[in-house]
Design a protein around this nucleic acid. Structure first.
Lengths: 197, 197, 197, 197
DNA sequence: CGTTAACCGAGACGGTACGTCCGGTCTTTTG
DNA sequence: CAAAAGACCGGACGTACCGTCTCGGTTAACG
């Protein structure tokens, strides 16, 4: 039986230092040139301490994101609901476009995606911890629109979310076109037209 | 001035062996564990021969795909046109879904995407050599539908393509849902509803 | 003031287990691959318990020998004295040769010597605890021979001991020749000739 | 079949740098704290270059000695022969004593001995390359003394050498007594008395 | 006879070095 | 003169131990 480390004895100080070092280094050198050794050195931590608690470099990177988003927002991810689904969605989509366009997030988010694409376990973890809750918030707003008769009652909301967000995601991933407010609006318009009762 | 290799003297035998070795190894060990050394050894080639003609591992992988798709299909990428845009698109989308679901293509396509995501130069090359021609063929079919009055004359066809394909691509990339014929049909239905005149 | 451990509270059970584990592991893996961690694990003891009571790996190994020889023999190290110095010495030397040739003692004795060669403090401890008493017993027998007129009265007995034992020791250490009864006899003959009155 | 490195392609520059770095570091930090990494760094060499050509740290250290002694002396290791074996031996033994007492040689020679004691392969190599030639030179001088009637014709010269040198060697190894000119003389006197015709 | 100080097992920690692998360059030999 | 072969420097990998440092849990002397 391969001995498991005892979580109760885990050093919180080291954990924080590692996650922070990982975040900094991804911004500085990008994911491809990120090394465990550099993380350990920057964090003032032995390499073994990283290997003890994370199975792979990707897992560290993932956790560093998770920690960031958990601290940054207080779980208040509910979308605005003014009663006007079109206006509300455009606000949210424009914000998303702006976030993707922000060069500060460029390297880290690409790193995260590279990991998720190639590691099903991380992908599952990502959905559970980040993707699903966010999606649920969005679906809640769409359901509200359904009740208001702005969206067909039998619309597939999962599909609706994909149609809204996937084109934006793909453009960013492939750099295949500009990410502008107009683009965000166009996606909302097209999607709402498709979802019309 | 760093001497440039003379393409005229390039060994076609070596080039083919390298690309084939790269393809085989990606299937066997995946992209992350693919090494230049292994490619050289498998191809019976010196490492320098690879470095002389390709700038990066990603470029070799990319070329190995390019060679495959160039040989496999004889540039006949025109889509079927029976006059029924809905039926034609569903045929094409179902075929795309089937291709993505084929485990044989799993590793290589994921490898290609990993490269493209992180290397803008490769992404541009990809669009030029593979993406744009394919998109153009699809847009030709959509224009035909516009002329037939099945699609709004002022529809943004680039956006239409994104709405059609990006959700499928995202599902596959993130493994966030099943890729079925029903899903393909639902995407076509939703898109066509949004594009209706 | 760095707190000193209190010998009165020392766990005899742990001490024994550590020394025994050290002995076993030296036989099994040799001195070079002996580790404190392995000793602690084998003995069912925390590493700190070893570091608390011994300053170095060599000290543990040394103590494990000391404990062995202290228990094995009851301090009756007096040499035989039949009145015939040649016969008596040959008996002793042949026994020594046999002991060195015993493969069971090979690894441990080599380990002990490696330590002693490189650590003056251990060397001094060795001489005090093991070497000097044994030498004294041998010199006692030589003095008896002097009184019997078999050895020159002014012979340097320390030198005599070295001439008797060092060649044997060197052969064993360097594996530079066979360790046989004949060799033992030859050393005794040569030494006695040199010591003749 | 594990590929063997090709000696013809070996870099002489690297070999020299490694051996010199090893020699310097042994003097500076001693054998126990000598690391392959430090040798590589000091020599400006990749670690693999060391592992490619030497099987162990001990082998590098050994070779660094070998190179030293091969360059230092031009194979002219013949002993003086004035016709007076006692005088000649005392000159040689006093020189040996002086060499052992020289603190500059302390660390390296102890390092060499530690290796040889624990590695039979190195011990054999040592005898072949260094020990046997030196011994042969000494035995040549003793044979000359035999022809001159100063030593018994049937004396065992191998044993004679051991009796001469092993006590000195043991004293140095165990630090069990002073290494002085008087001690050298005493050993010669005792040995010659034992070898007398 | 409870308090309490020390030892104890366990094992996480910051480190150092290991021996291996591979990247990218350089050199030598072969076709 | 390109290509194969492969040695080279560099540097990251993941592992093994080092010696130190908490942790709870005994355990034994003392008050």
């Amino acid at each position: 039986m391969p001995k498991q480390p005892d979580p109760a004895r885990r050093s919180e100080r080291s954990r924080q230092a590692i996650l922070e070092a990982a975040r900094e280094l991804i911004s500085e050198v990008g994911y491809a040139r990120l090394t465990i050794e550099a993380i350990a050195a920057r964090a003032g931590v032995g390499k073994q301490t990283i290997y003890r608690w994370w199975p792979s470099k990707g897992a560290v990177v993932f956790d560093s994101f998770l920690a960031l988003s958990e601290s940054g927002q207080d779980r208040s991810m509910a979308l605005p609901d003014t009663g006007d689904i079109e206006a509300d969605l455009k606000v949210v989509m424009r914000a998303t476009v702006a976030e993707f366009a922000d060069p500060v997030f460029e390297a880290p988010i690409r790193a995260l995606n590279t990991e998720i694409i190639n590691d099903p376990a991380l992908a599952a973890q990502y959905r559970e911890k980040l993707g699903d809750p966010v999606d649920e918030a969005k679906k809640a707003r769409l359901r509200s629109a359904q009740r208001a008769g702005q969206i067909a009652a039998d619309a597939d909301l999962d599909l609706a979310l994909e149609v809204l967000y996937a084109p934006l995601y793909q453009r960013w991933l492939h750099r295949s076109g500009p990410l502008t407010a107009e683009y965000a609006d166009a996606l909302v318009d097209l999607t709402l037209k498709a979802l019309r009762p």
